[in-house]
Structures are given as C-alpha cells and as structure tokens.
C-alpha cells in the first residue's frame, strides 16, 4: 500500500499506484476535522448551522462568521479552513452577480453549485495550486423551491435533504436521517438542528460553544438572512432542555 511516506502523496498531480490522489484527500481532512456544519432543507425553506468554539471574551460576539450571504436568495456555510472558504464565497458572489447581469434572473442553485464545484476542482488539477481546505454548503430558495447543496473540494456537488460536514458529522447525519425534514417547517427544524449539534459535543472538554444560524424561507421573504439573535437563543435553550429531559427519562428508565 502506498500512502503516508511513500512519496505518492506530495503533489496534487501525482496518482498513487491504486489510482488515488492523496493531496485532495488530505485537503478533505481539513474539512473533516473542522467545525461541524449542518444544512437542512425543509418544506418551506432551508437552514444552515455551524457550531463554533467560543474563543476569548476579548473577541466580539458573532464576529468570526462562517455563514456568508452569496446573493439575496442564497447563502453559504464554510467548514474547514475559513480563509479558503472565503475564496469560494467570493467566487460564488461573482458567479451570482454575473449570471444576474447576463440573464437578468437570479442564478439557479444547481448552476451555481456546479460552477463552484468546478472552481474547487481547478485547484486540484495543477501542481502549482493546492486543493482548497474547505467546501461550500449552500442553502437557497429559487423558483424551484428551497435547496441545500454541498460542493466539495474534490469537485463533486450533490443536493441533499440534510447534510453535515466537519467533526462529528456521522452522528449528526444519523440524527438527520431520523427526522422527517420534508414535513417540517424551518422554525421547527431550527430546534432540531441545534439539538443535533449539541448532542455531538464532546462533554469532556470544558469548552464553550456558540451556534451560528441562518435561514431562507417564505417567512424571510425568500431572502437569506441570519436567524434573529433572540430566536436563535430560544431554539438553543429549548434544544438543551429537551436533551436534558431525554437524559433524565433514560436514567429514570434505568433506575
């Protein structure tokens, strides 16, 4: 087996004997080990959520954002390396603007996410570039309704009902699979998403976390906006309470 130390994993233009391009896989690790990001598509809209460790109290609250607005109808969460992710966001903003300028209509989400996947893919084709250590988790609302897409650094892009990337993604995905997302409203889903994120937290570390939430739905006038701070707090608190409740129930049953 080739792999670490074999010399086949040093350049993005080198295939390993088994036909893998290790450099793109390594870049994917940056996303996998990064903060957890969730995107869900509900019946009336779509939600993006990111859980971030709370840094020092000297930092302004809500200042290091990971959810960005791409256009009025579309927003994006960036897992992994934030600076790399911002490059994707800038590109997305340009694509959306150019499409609008040329066709006079908002860019369809499929077109946008495909173009972003292409953009990411270019970085994995040349020896003088490196693959981006991020991905584009896109939520939007266009003529065909709400969408959630994930365009990855290796150049693929899929549409999802619900998707999680970053640390603890497996656990969150399992939780998402249990939910009936297509029957939920965004408002209901907000709490559920918070719950998923809180559940996968590593309780052993004493770190504090904050959840960044943004959505687009009929309620927001089909504009991609951050969830109002008080509503976000409310959802997080409700989610915490429910988890505690469940834990109590569990221990009651055991006892």
């Amino acid at each position: 087996m080739s792999g670490v130390g074999s010399g086949y994993d040093l350049s993005v233009t080198t295939f390993s004997p088994e036909g893998r391009v290790f450099q793109t896989e390594y870049a994917g690790k940056a996303t996998d080990n990064g903060v957890p990001c969730v995107g869900v598509c509900c019946k009336d809209g779509a939600i993006l959520a990111v859980e971030k460790p709370e840094e020092t109290k000297m930092m302004l609250p809500n200042s290091n954002r990971r959810i960005f607005t791409v256009s009025r109808h579309c927003g994006m969460a960036v897992p992994g390396k934030l600076p790399d992710g911002r490059q994707i966001v800038s590109r997305a903003q340009q694509e959306a603007e150019n499409y609008k300028r040329f066709y006079g209509e908002t860019i369809p989400t499929k077109v946008l996410t495909d173009r972003l996947a292409n953009f990411c893919h270019v970085f994995s084709l040349y020896w003088h570039l490196r693959p981006l250590g991020s991905a584009a988790l896109t939520a939007s609302f266009d003529d065909d309704g709400p969408h959630v897409y994930l365009s990855e650094t290796n150049g693929v892009s899929y549409r999802y009902y619900g998707i999680a990337v970053g640390k603890g993604r497996q656990g969150i995905k399992t939780e998402l699979e249990r939910m009936k997302l297509d029957q939920m409203t965004c408002k209901e889903a907000l709490k559920a998403v918070c719950k998923c994120l809180i559940k996968q937290r590593d309780d052993s570390s004493n770190k504090k976390f904050e959840i960044e939430l943004a959505w687009i739905s009929e309620e927001t006038g089909r504009e991609f906006v951050r969830v109002p701070a008080d509503l976000a707090k409310e959802c997080e608190a409700a989610a915490k309470k429910e988890i505690e409740q469940e834990e109590d129930d569990d221990s009651d049953m055991e006892g």
Binding site: F68, T69, Q93, E97, K100
Partner: peptide
C-alpha cells in the same frame, strides 16, 4: 448590484 453587495456584506 451595488445594493446586493451591501446585503451580502451584512
């Protein structure tokens, strides 16, 4: 376009 940019900066 200018106003959309303002909106995106948020």
């Amino acid at each position: 376009e200018l106003m959309t940019q303002d909106f995106c900066y948020d």
